[in-house]
């Protein structure tokens, strides 16, 4: 089997770590929470302490529990939105790129329209038409967000597909008589995997932002805890002004961390696609140990003086012969 040679740069490892941590939190967060996020039985406005790690709200709710519980809704919605948007953009992008002609014109027009419409106002409009009951449904919110987030990916995938379409192996498939949809599915799509992955990360990141924003301006159900609603309540209760930083900082930091993790992972994908970014395959330590310049400059091939005479060295053989 093919061995995947994933780059092991610190960036990617860190990104993987952060992302894995939050994914884990999505699954077990609600079970870890020491209290119910709705429980108002504690003293209000407690600063962080051993008992309440992140303090309490002015309604007397445990912020640590809210953060843990809120992770699930935030990330599930983002994943749903990301997956659906990526699926949509793949469908649109690959068909447009491969089929060309009128199909391409139509689909490109559609994605350009969606690109041109500002996403957030559209989201707000669509969302305000939703029945209030369905606003607590992660799936429905995710679908709505995905509607505004697929167009960018579709354009990227279309461009990639168009460059693949003229490659010889696609022509070879046509020569043997392969059907079009099969070519798209089995020949084109696998070559788009790195781009797809990158597009998925991007849309997940976008969806977190979109969902948190919707919640923050109060357009999602307040009965579902997520990091956006936490910010909504903190804002509503004037937390930033009254110095209750522990109320809005935890959800903010979590959002930032997820974003960082996903971006770092994206670097990894870039390096995977473009090995030249991998800094010549030499780690910083290897470079230092050999006295090589830290950065390789164009037009200055580094010279490595052999530290130990290699037995296989040609000079050794030829000189020995003399």
């Amino acid at each position: 089997m093919k061995t995947l040679n994933l780059p092991r740069s610190p960036k990617v490892v860190l990104g993987l770590g952060i992302t894995a941590f939050f994914l884990l939190l999505t699954i077990i967060g609600p079970y870890l929470a020491p209290f119910s996020p709705d429980d108002t039985s504690f003293a209000p406005n407690l600063t962080p302490s051993w008992h309440h790690w992140f303090g309490t709200t002015s309604l007397g709710q445990d912020i640590f529990s809210q953060t843990l519980v809120g992770a699930r809704a935030t990330i599930v919605v983002a994943l749903v939105a990301g997956l659906v948007a990526t699926a949509l953009s793949t469908l649109v992008g690959v068909s447009a790129g491969y089929l060309g002609g009128f199909t391409d014109d139509g689909l490109s027009l559609m994605s350009n329209v969606f690109l041109a419409i500002p996403g957030l106002p559209l989201l707000i409009v669509i969302d305000s038409y939703l029945p209030v009951g369905s606003r607590s449904n992660a799936l429905i919110i995710g679908l709505v967000i995905s509607l505004t987030g697929w167009a960018w990916g579709a354009r990227v995938l279309r461009a990639q597909t168009m460059s693949l379409r003229n490659r010889d192996f696609i022509e070879a498939s046509r020569i043997i008589g392969e059907r079009r949809w099969r070519i798209m599915l089995t020949e084109v799509a696998p070559n788009l995997l790195p781009v797809l992955a990158s597009s998925l990360l991007f849309t997940v990141l976008y969806s977190i932002g979109a969902y948190v924003t919707l919640a923050y301006i109060g357009l999602t159900s307040s009965s579902v805890w997520n990091w956006g609603t936490m910010l909504f309540w903190a804002q509503a209760n004037n937390a930033p002004l009254s110095g209750e930083w522990y109320w809005f900082v935890p959800p903010g930091v979590c959002i930032a961390l997820v974003g960082t993790g996903l971006s770092l992972l994206n670097f990894g994908i870039d390096e995977f696609i473009n090995p030249r970014l991998r800094e010549s395959g030499l780690t910083a330590r290897q470079r230092r140990r050999r006295g090589l310049p830290r950065r390789v400059r164009l037009g200055l091939t580094p010279v490595l003086r052999p530290v130990v005479a290699k037995a296989s060295g040609p000079a050794a053989t030829s000189k020995a012969a003399s």
């Binding site: 490659r167 010889d168 192996f169 022509e171 070879a172 498939s173 020569i175 696998p190 070559n191 995997l193």
Partner: peptide, 13 residues
């Protein structure tokens, strides 16, 4: 049969 043997095989298969 196409010219470029490297290009005419899908690299992922």
């Amino acid at each position: 049969v196409l010219q470029d043997p490297f290009g005419s095989m899908n690299p992922v298969h």
